[in-house]
Simulated scan of single mutants.
Amino acid sequence: MSEQLLIMLAFMESSGTLAPFMFVLFHVIRQFMFIPVALVCIAGGILFGSFLGTLYSMGGLLLLSAVFYFCIGKMPGTHAKLMKIKYKWFGRYTKMTVGQIAVLRLIPFFHYQLLNICLLERRPDFKGFMKGAFATNLPLAFFYTVFGEFITHFTPGMATIIILSLCLLFYLLREKIVIVTWEEFFSHQKEQSKNPC
Rank of each mutant, 00 (worst) to 15 (best):
D125R: 15
I117E: 02
L82G: 01
Y56R: 01
C118P: 03
R123Q: 12
I117H: 11
F48N: 05
V24W: 04
S65D: 07
K88T: 11
K88L: 10
F90V: 08
S57E: 00
F23W: 13
L25F: 12
T94I: 12
Y144L: 04
T54G: 10
T152I: 11
G60R: 03
V67D: 01
Q31Y: 13
A66M: 12
H27N: 10
V37A: 08
G53V: 02
G132I: 02
P20F: 14
G16K: 12
H111M: 08
M75C: 14
F109V: 07
L82N: 04
I117A: 04
L61C: 05
C41H: 09
P20S: 14
V40G: 09
F48P: 01
F150Q: 15
T152H: 15
K127E: 14
F32P: 12
I101W: 00
H27L: 11
G77L: 03
L138M: 04
R105Q: 07
A102G: 03
L138F: 05
L39H: 15
A80M: 12
G128R: 08
I72H: 06
F23D: 02
P36M: 14
I72D: 04
A38K: 08
G77I: 11
Y93S: 02
G53T: 00
G91Q: 03
G77M: 15
W89C: 11
Y93F: 11
I85V: 09
T78C: 10
T97A: 05
L115A: 09
V37N: 05
P76R: 05
M83V: 09
H153T: 04
M75V: 12
A102D: 03
F48E: 08
P36S: 14
P124T: 14
L62F: 13
S15D: 07
A102F: 01
L47A: 07
R122E: 10
T136Q: 00
G128P: 00
F109L: 12
K95I: 13
F26M: 06
G45R: 09
A43L: 14
E149T: 10
F26P: 07
M22I: 15
K86F: 03
S65N: 06
A141T: 07
L55R: 05
L52Q: 13
G91K: 13
T97P: 01
H27S: 08
F126K: 12
A80I: 09
T17P: 11
L25T: 05
T78Y: 14
Q113Y: 14
V98L: 10
N137R: 02
F51S: 06
P139I: 05
F143C: 10
L64R: 03
I117K: 04
H79G: 09
